[in-house]
Amino acid sequence: MRQTLFRWLPQIALVILLALLLGWMGHNVLENMRGRGIHAGFDFLRDPAGFEIGEGLLDYDASQPLWRAFLTGTLNTLRVGLPAIVAATLLGALIGLGRLAEHPVPRKLCGALVETLRNIPLLLQLLMCYFALTSLLPEASEAIAPLPGFLLSKGGLFLPALDCTQTCMLDLPAAEGFGISGGWSLSPEFLAVLIALSLYSAVFIAEIVRGGIQSVSRGQIDAARALGLRPLQVLRVVIAPLALRAIVPPLGNQYLNLIKNSSLAVAVGYPELVSVANTSLNQTGRAFECIVIVMAVYLSLSLLTALLMNRYNTRVALRGTR
């Protein structure tokens, strides 16, 4: 009896203390908001937003309710996060393999790349990318064409797009006056976030890939070679399936980090969730509600990613070990 009391009393006291602290803070929030003439609650989400969002997947304008603005922001987070995950995985695998190359030159180059990018804050890399894209590139009228049909300038990257309104045809971007018309445009903000996020995550993924491949025992590879498999076949048939087991769990963590890091896009004005929340926070003064929404969305994104990665992990994991 005394044992049970001794176990539960401190815990109950801790919970009461926490509840008191939270209650006190909640009371303060209500008091402060009353002082500023704002009442709490999420009903403000139905009010017209009153600010424009530069780009997005939805039709959105300033007269639409605020929740549409938050939805546009969330979709923008995914719009840059998902391509960045794909790009970072591919680049990371390449750099990771490069670090294991037998020839010292690619090995040293990839090593230097990893050590450089890993030790510089992502925010700085993002700002650098954005500056390079908006200040060092030529004006839209003198856009450079890295590939035929692609135009790169201060206004962003213009890609050929498939236009299927009447008959399907390729819509090529062309310089027109001071701007570029036609094609599929990607803003410099989007590009900066995409490039910086992919590169930064790629070097972390490269280290995971390298560790995963190095965890494959030497005997497996020797055996595969003895069977007469070519080096690329060894990689594909023997190393990759074995290495994936060590790679997938930390890879999932990197994807979570990437999604969370996409919030830095607020620094270059790409209208993702945090940026939209920041604007609406400044406009409505609803600091508490806006921050709660941001946190809730990121938490659900994190949970979703963790769920998907766990699914995939059970598929690649050794049968019988889980």
């Binding site: 969370k260 890091n261 921050i291 938490l299």
Partner: peptide
């Protein structure tokens, strides 16, 4: 909870 949200939202 803390590991699930980005630092920038906490800084805001």
């Amino acid at each position: 909870l803390v590991r699930g949200v980005p630092l920038i939202s906490l800084l805001f």
